[in-house]
């Protein structure tokens, strides 16, 4: 199995950084395409999730936060209690119950967890939030201000509608 050379995919990296999308040639070596650290990610266990426009970025962030919340060992406070609160805010964004202050708090908590958590789990728990806020801010705003999920994934609750009115 022959990987494409590094040089061949330089253009692809540029393309990604410009448009946040990439068309991968078959059998491309991943590290060649994506300088992960550069774009704020890590390889982790080697998994890769491919998503299209039907995936709600807020819900994706919520999903990863749920994972971290469940996996938190509970020793240090920022991770144990912070992931719970971040998950709660993300959940409320997806149901339309959140407001602008919640978004600010999400950012504040992201800093707290990154800077004060005891281990890598808590330190990296906010990454999906930080990345989605950076690359898809309009999805957060649509949920919060318009009570609308651009991907058509989230169901706004009655409580959410009340917040809107």
């Amino acid at each position: 199995m022959a990987y494409q050379s590094l040089r061949d995919s330089d253009a692809q990296i540029e393309n990604f950084n410009r448009a946040n999308t990439v068309n991968l040639p078959r059998q491309t070596h991943l590290s060649a395409v994506l300088r992960l650290a550069q774009i704020g990610s890590i390889m982790g266990s080697g998994g890769l999730i491919v998503m299209d426009e039907t995936s709600c970025m807020v819900d994706v962030a919520r999903f990863f936060m749920e994972f971290c919340m469940d996996e938190s060992c509970g020793k240090c406070i920022p991770c144990r209690a912070g992931t719970v609160q971040m998950h709660d805010i993300l959940r409320r964004i997806t149901t339309g119950e959140a407001n602008e202050d919640d978004l600010e708090m999400l950012k504040t908590l992201s800093d707290l967890l990154r800077e004060t958590s005891l281990c890598g789990l808590g330190q990296t728990a906010p990454n999906p939030v930080i990345s989605t806020l950076k690359y898809f801010p309009q999805e957060y705003e649509a949920h919060i201000h318009e009570k609308r999920c651009p991907a058509g994934h989230c169901h706004m609750t009655a409580a959410g509608q009340e917040v809107a009115s």
Partner: peptide, 12 residues
Amino acid sequence: HRKLIVELLLAE
């Protein structure tokens, strides 16, 4: 950070 941590505890 400290304020946030204590608030997290109070809410927990």
